[in-house]
Every structure is written in C-alpha cells, then in structure tokens.
Write a protein that binds this DNA or RNA. Structure first.
Lengths: 181, 181
DNA sequence: CATAGATTTCAGATAGTTCTGAAGAAAGTA
DNA sequence: TACTTTCTTCAGAACTATCTGAAATCTATG
C-alpha cells in the first residue's frame, strides 16, 4: 500500500477528535463520527459508519441523529436507494458557528437565566435589610452582576469570532488593538 | 430569618454553576467549590468546604488542588493557624483569562499538534502518489489546513482579548458588544 | 525527635454515561 | 397484503468518572 501514511493520518485525526470530545461535553463516538464524515468526500450510510468505527447500529443511529440535531451533518437521500446517507458540513467557519451557537445555548444561557433570578431574589429583599445582612446582600449583588457581565462578554466574543471568520481576522484585530491601546 | 432569599440565591447559584460544569469538561464538585469560594468574602478551609457542600475530605482536597492548578483559587496561609485556607479570584476578568488559557491548552493545543503531525505524514508521501490516491491526499490536506487555520484564528483572538482586558471588564464588554453588532 | 494536627493519596464503592443487540416500527416494493 | 430492507428505540451491559474513607505522609511545635 502506497497510501499508508495518508490512511494513518486519517485514523489519527479521527481518534484525536474523539478524545477531545470529553472536554467539549460531547460523547467520543459522536465526535469520531463527525470527524469521519468531515474527512470523507462522499456521503456515508449507517453501515459505513458502523464498519469504519466498529460501533453498533444503535449507537451509530443515535449519534447520527444527534449530529443532525446539532446541525453539523445533513441527511442525504439518493434516488433509487433506500438507505439514508450523511454528509458533514465542510466549511469550517460554518461548522464553528454551529458549534458556538449550540454551546452558548447549553452553557451560557442557563447561567444568565439563573443569575437574573438570583438578582431578583436579592432585590426583593435588600431594602428591608440592615447592618451585616445588608452588607452581605450587597456583596452578592456585586458578584452576580460581575458574572452576568462576564457572560455578556463571552457572548460578544462568540459573535465576534464568527464574524472574524467571515470577513477575515484583520478588521477585528485592528479594532481590538485600538481598544487595548 | 429575614435573609432567606439572599441565602436561597446563594444556594441556587452554587447549584447551577455545578450543573453547568459537565458541558465545560469540569467535574460538578470542582465547579461547586469554585462557586462557593467565589461568593464567600473570607477564605475557607477544607473543613468549611466539606461541611457546606457535603463532600468527603478526599474529594475536597483533590478538587481544591485542581482549582489551584487552574489558577482559579489561591492558598491563603494565616499566621498562628496550621490550617490552609482558600480564596477565589474575585476579579471576573482575571478569571475569564484563566479559564480561556486553560481551555485553550486542553482543547485547542492538542488538536493543533495532531493536525501538524497529520500534515507532515501526508507531505512525506504525497509527491509519490498518482491518480485517485493523489486526489484523496490533496483533499485531506485541505481539510487539515482548514482546521489549523481555524485554530490559529481562535488563538489570535484570545490573545487580543486578554490584552484588551487589562483595562477592566466593562469597557471591553461594551466595545465588544458594539463590534459584534 | 516524638507527637498531634492537617493534608494527600489511593483502593474500592458509587453514580453517571454511553454502547450493544435485538425487537419493533416505518417505508418501499411486488 | 405480504415481504424486504432500513431505521429507531430501549432494557440491560459495559465502561468511565468521581467520590469516599481510611491509611500514609507531611509539618509545626514542645
């Protein structure tokens, strides 16, 4: 086999992409399927995925559905063929935007909602407090506000990143450099 | 108890911060300890953490060490007291920088290294390939390059952000919001 | 250097997640 | 309708991550 290094690089990438999954809150198999489809030019069917990654039909089915839900892969129907095929989004920036949108929804949004609730809980009560209790409440209020601002900054950063990809990094970099003084 | 809402908001925040942990690749207890220390004005010792969060000594010890490794909390020594106390970084911007730095190291860096290896594996071999094998190798090269470019853009953006952050969170947050539209 | 208090470590227990394989549903075809 | 192929679902199995509790280690002090 002359292409053994090419094939090895393919396997290495799939493996590593899967190993990274844990720190992204994604299951290893789901990430491996995504990597496989990202590298493969033609759409693959469930049996291809099962065979290439050595996973069961149930797992392949579930993880493919989840990837479709995320919007990272699409179903492809071939006329005259009963099977369903799947194809990954190949535009990296589009992929990134999708991942960011999902992660923001899962990670940042719940915190924002909780903080807002925490703030209103404190506001309900602060005016009636005196002495140390009042001081404590004010300290919490400050911490909650800081976190909220932090989340908003994260959101802006995410927006900025997706923009940066489209127009190129340079305009964003300049704007930030100006800010940094 | 007049402060029951204040206390409730404290518990709610700690709980939610912990629940979020999974999608950040951080253990729940570690996140809860961080939330507890973030909200508490005075440094706490291991026993305080054990009592307030109902966790074992071993778990408290391990998770506190891990938080120190991340740089999210500091050890505080009190003269005349053998116990060690822990205090969270309260500057949210500093916290943001720390989290981003760690996540980049854990999530982005390994991918970059893998891609570089994949690329060199392909380069070793491409010139000798002809026909379909050559076309496949070129396609892989393109996919790897796309991912690498993406990682580099992320890195640049993080660098700029942390630079921009020196002047305090609020102006940066506002400027980012404006930039991001 | 012996002791008591504090911290760390780690083998085994527990809890949580993901996978498997087979049954059943759905959809196309004769 | 009966049959075939494909897809989905889900109970139980397998695996992984995290915690517990106690023993070992460390450290300050008389």
């Amino acid at each position: 086999m002359e292409e053994q290094h090419v094939e090895a690089s393919r396997l290495l990438f799939i493996r590593r992409w899967g190993e990274m999954a844990a720190s992204w809150g994604i299951s290893r198999t789901m990430a491996e399927i995504h990597a496989l489809l990202y590298l493969t030019a033609e759409p693959l069917c469930t049996d291809d995925v099962m065979e290439q990654l050595s996973v069961s039909r149930g797992s392949a089915s579930t993880n493919l559905r989840e990837l479709v839900n995320w919007g990272l892969i699409h179903r492809v129907h071939r006329r005259g063929d009963r099977k369903e095929y799947f194809e990954a989004e190949k535009d990296v920036w589009q992929m990134f935007e999708t991942i960011v949108r999902e992660r923001r929804r899962r990670e940042v949004q719940p915190i924002v909602e909780t903080i807002e609730r925490c703030q209103s809980m404190i506001d309900d009560e602060t005016s009636g407090l005196r002495g140390q209790a009042r001081i404590d409440a004010d300290a919490y209020r400050k911490r909650f506000t800081d976190i909220l601002e932090f989340c908003e900054t994260m959101n802006s950063l995410f927006n900025l990143m997706t923009k940066a990809g489209r127009g190129g990094l340079s305009p964003v970099a300049k704007a930030l450099a100006r800010l940094a003084g």
